[in-house]
Design a protein around this nucleic acid. Structure first.
Length: 276
DNA sequence: CATTTCACCTGGTGGC
DNA sequence: TGCCACCAGGTGAAAT
């Protein structure tokens, strides 16, 4: 599932290849689920504008579009959330169209930007910058948050720390994989109440989370189900996972079997010996 | 308000 | 081989 490192990889890939290109035409599938903004309105707004910048905010891909090709004064933002199985692909316009393709943006270079999503948990939205503020995401960026702000997020929260990490209105971009992996590296059990963490544990968690996210970005993300980047290339960070989907396998640090429990209705993996 | 639960989806898996 | 029940999980709405 695409989380911060996967979304960042995709956004960077699309930026590198699609920046400066004009949208010639737009096609959307008939399914209503992926569209927060009505498809006809979204197509009308996108057509004719140029892609100025593509970046990640939380788990969202933000595409700035405007009349000029340079990254200045965009007039709209196209917001892509990949959900569970979403892909944003940059390909030849003549490439075969995969099943579950929900959006095709024809670009002036003969390429297309395609949104493909089998499970339809993804969402497409439009922000009109002439009357709406620029997209800022639901929470705080985990990669740049400082220790004081990080600790403040969890102060007084009775919920398990794993649940708090998944709460996008606190930190945005962290999902099931990186919540489990960062808790392992910090040596903290997922069911601990967020408010019970000491200052030292919170700081260990922040540093572990940032380290894991940066390492995953460097390896192009984790390909556990069907994640691929904008060019259809798989990531490699799944090879570095210590706990996620390693139920029963030996802990990489101590050798004891990795446990699996449910937290917030999500499969949660941890080492009973290394995490306290 | 904080927190938990559930519905939304379909491909993949495992049992028979 | 084929059929089918079941599960995964990001998010937001509904329930507690």
């Amino acid at each position: 599932m695409p989380e911060l490192p996967e979304v960042e990889t995709i956004a960077n890939g699309v930026h590198a290849r699609a920046r400066g290109q004009q949208v010639l035409s737009v096609w959307f599938s008939r399914y209503p689920q992926p569209f927060l903004t009505r498809p006809a309105r979204m197509a009308r707004a996108l057509t004719g504008l140029s892609i100025q910048q593509v970046r990640r905010i939380g788990k969202h891909i933000v595409v700035d579009l405007g009349a000029g090709k340079n990254p200045s004064s965009p007039s709209i933002q196209w917001i892509v959330h990949l959900g569970m199985t979403g892909r944003l692909l940059y390909c030849e316009a003549t490439a075969p169209v995969a099943t579950h393709t929900h959006a095709r943006l024809e670009l002036d270079s003969g390429h297309e930007l395609r949104f493909v999503d089998a499970r339809r948990f993804g969402r497409l939205d439009l922000i009109d910058l002439s009357c709406e503020p620029s997209f800022s995401g639901p929470g705080t960026e985990p990669l740049t948050i400082d220790s004081v702000a990080f600790a403040a997020l969890f102060h007084g929260r009775r919920t398990p720390i794993k649940s708090a990490l998944l709460n996008q209105s606190l930190l945005h971009g962290v999902g099931n994989i990186y919540a489990d992996e960062s808790l392992f590296h910090a040596g903290i059990r997922p069911l601990r109440h967020a408010s019970s963490l000491t200052r030292a544990e919170l700081e260990r968690l922040r540093l572990s989370l940032q380290k894991v996210l940066r390492a995953a970005i460097a390896l192009g993300g984790s390909s556990v189900s069907d994640y691929v980047d904008a060019n259809g290339i798989r990531g490699f960070f799944q090879l570095e996972h210590c706990v996620y989907l390693r139920t029963g396998k030996p802990c990489r640090l101590c050798g004891s079997p990795i446990q699996r429990i449910l937290v917030a209705a999500r499969g949660t993996h941890y080492c009973n010996k290394c995490q306290k």
